[in-house]
Nucleic acid binder design. Structure first.
Length: 214
DNA sequence: ACAGAGTAGTGCTTTCCACA
DNA sequence: TGTGGAAAGCACTACTCTGT
């Protein structure tokens, strides 16, 4: 198995046979399990392979390196988030922003609970400028930003309305603060306010910014 | 006492290749 | 086609030595 083959396989699991798909999935599951107790930075191919009950050589048949398997996990987490967001079908109307914000922030908290280490790693690698992780984060951001943007362009309390660019800029500000806080709430043990109270505050601020009631 | 260079040991990554 | 043993290569760490 050449390095090029491994590269192809890591990004195209469907090209594998049944046994290969099973082994690849075992490695992904093993990595996900190890991430519940190990930092992504300390994760090793040897540990993943051992947890999956296979040799480290086999690991490199399916993944280029540890970052590659972390990317696969990040990709799956992003798909999960996009599906959850799409299922909610929120931020379509300025009249429902308060309810939608609560639903959105609850969903976001659940996603961070489920994919904590992977999402944090995705954020870190995207911040570092890795194009694959940047693109992944961008897909998620774009899905949410586009909804905020549409609502801000026709925010009922803004007269004159924001132009397209300013509406998009404000969408970015809102999204970035929500995303960063979602990460921080899960990793900052010194916070004296409960995650629920912070979420409620975020929902109020979103509502105030996009479509204040009354 | 301290800083920097050199070295050995250790663990991990990566590849090759034989085998099922 | 898929797996894993073996080994080379690499990176990191701890330790020792040397000069200031």
């Amino acid at each position: 198995m050449t390095r090029a083959d491994a590269l192809f396989r890591s990004s195209s699991p469907h090209a594998l046979g049944r046994k290969g798909r099973e082994t690849r999935q075992r490695l992904v599951d093993a990595a996900a399990l190890l991430l519940t107790s190990t930092s992504p930075i300390d994760l090793t191919a040897m540990a993943i392979a051992a947890e999956a009950g296979t040799a480290s050589a086999t690991f490199y048949v399916y993944f280029r390196d540890v970052q590659d398997i972390l990317y696969a996990l990040s990709e799956a987490a992003t798909e999960d988030m996009l599906a959850a967001f799409s299922k909610l079908d929120i931020f379509r109307s300025n009249a429902r922003v308060a309810e939608d914000s609560e639903a959105f922030l609850k969903m976001l908290a659940e996603q961070w609970e489920r994919h904590n280490a992977v999402l944090y790693y995705r954020m870190m690698e995207a911040d570092r400028g890795d194009p694959r992780f940047t693109k992944l984060r961008g897909r998620w951001a774009e899905a949410v930003l586009s909804r905020f943007w549409e609502l801000l362009k026709r925010a009922p309390h803004l007269e004159p309305p924001l132009d397209e660019t300013d509406a998009y800029a404000e969408s970015i500000v809102l999204f970035a603060s929500i995303e960063r806080l979602a990460a921080a709430v899960h990793r900052e043990p010194r916070l004296t306010i409960s995650a629920q109270r912070i979420r409620a505050a975020q929902a109020r601020i979103l509502t105030r910014m996009i479509a204040p009631q009354g």
